[in-house]
Each structure stands twice: as structure tokens, then as C-alpha cells.
């Protein structure tokens, strides 16, 4: 039984029309149908957060959605974070604070954090930690990531977090 559906999805501003099987995970669709391999897959059971993308502006785990559910919706992946070639302040901050090592979990952190840093000019460290509590990183021990978040907020809001 192959249940096929034709969907139109806007990813990073480009609209794609594809025919997909109903069971195809959104993460697989983004990576293997659209070739946007910056979104990574770490657990496929919704714990590690590596596959986080923005779905209509909100961070979600793309391994816990079917591609067919994205029909008519807008998605942003890490490739869309800095389309002009310049890095987003969040990416710059990660670079400056050494907030990544192997870099596998990084796109998930960035997509989780994008709305957070844009809407939180002055978070506490506890709020930052909670914001990333749904993303696992095995390399950094999180400390430099937290420093990067503070730095990104400074860059975006010109404040001291």
C-alpha cells in the first residue's frame, strides 16, 4: 500500500512541489528529497533535537512530523538562516564563542535559538538553559553554547544579557 500525496511546501522562501508517500518523515523529505542536508537526524524519536526546523516560525522536531503535514506551510532550515552568505548573528556568536565541536547538533540548536534570541533581549541564564533543554550536544558540555547565546543577544539587541 503506497499512499502518495502531492504537496507544496515553502522552504527557506522557495516553494517546492513534490509527490511523497504519506509516511515520509519531514526530516527525510528535507534532507533527501530537497537535498537540504544541513538538517541532521540524530534519534528519530524526538529527544535529541538535531532535526529541529522552524515550522511556520516555530521550532519543531522534523522527525516527529510527516512531510505531508507540511503541505501549504513554511519551513526554515539552517540553510535559510543566512541566505545572503553573511552569517546570522547567532551563527557569528557560535563561531566566536567556540560553541560547536563536531557540529552535528549545531543546526538544531541554531533553529531552536533563532526565535528565542530574537524575542528575548534580556534572558536569565536559567531561561537560556531551558530554551536549549530539548537539544542534546555530546561535545561541548553546553557552556560555550550558553556563552554564544548571550553574545548573539548582545549582537541582536545591543544589550547585555
Amino acid at each position: 500500500m503506497t499512499d502518495l500525496h502531492t504537496i507544496r511546501v515553502t522552504v527557506n522562501g522557495t516553494t517546492y512541489e513534490r509527490t511523497v508517500e504519506a509516511r515520509m518523515l519531514l526530516s527525510d523529505f528535507i534532507r533527501h528529497e530537497l537535498g537540504l542536508t544541513g538538517t541532521h537526524v540524530g534519534c528519530e524519536h524526538g529527544v535529541c533535537g538535531a532535526c529541529t526546523v522552524l515550522f511556520d516560525g516555530q521550532p519543531v522536531r522534523s522527525c516527529l512530523m510527516f512531510a505531508v503535514q507540511a503541505d501549504g506551510h513554511e519551513i526554515m532550515t539552517v540553510e535559510g538562516l543566512a541566505p545572503e552568505g553573511e552569517m546570522h548573528p547567532l551563527q557569528e556568536a557560535f563561531h566566536e564563542a567556540h560553541a560547536l565541536q563536531c557540529g552535528f547538533c549545531t543546526p538544531g540548536f541554531l533553529m531552536t535559538l533563532k526565535p528565542f534570541v530574537e524575542t528575548h533581549p534580556n534572558p536569565t541564564e536559567e531561561e537560556i538553559r531551558k530554551a536549549i533543554s530539548g537539544n542534546l550536544c555530546r561535545c561541548t558540555g553546553y557552556q560555550h553554547i550558553i556563552e554564544a547565546v548571550k553574545l548573539a543577544i548582545k549582537k541582536i539587541h545591543h544589550t547585555d544579557a
Binding site: D3, E21, A22, L25, E44, H45, F66, V68, Q69
Partner: peptide, 11 residues
């Protein structure tokens, strides 16, 4: 870890 096939409806 891929889900099994199913028939999908989106009312």
C-alpha cells in the same frame, strides 16, 4: 527507524 505505511487523511 522509519514508520510503516498507512493511509493518510487530513480532514
Amino acid at each position: 527507524m522509519k514508520p510503516p505505511a498507512f493511509k493518510y487523511y487530513a480532514p
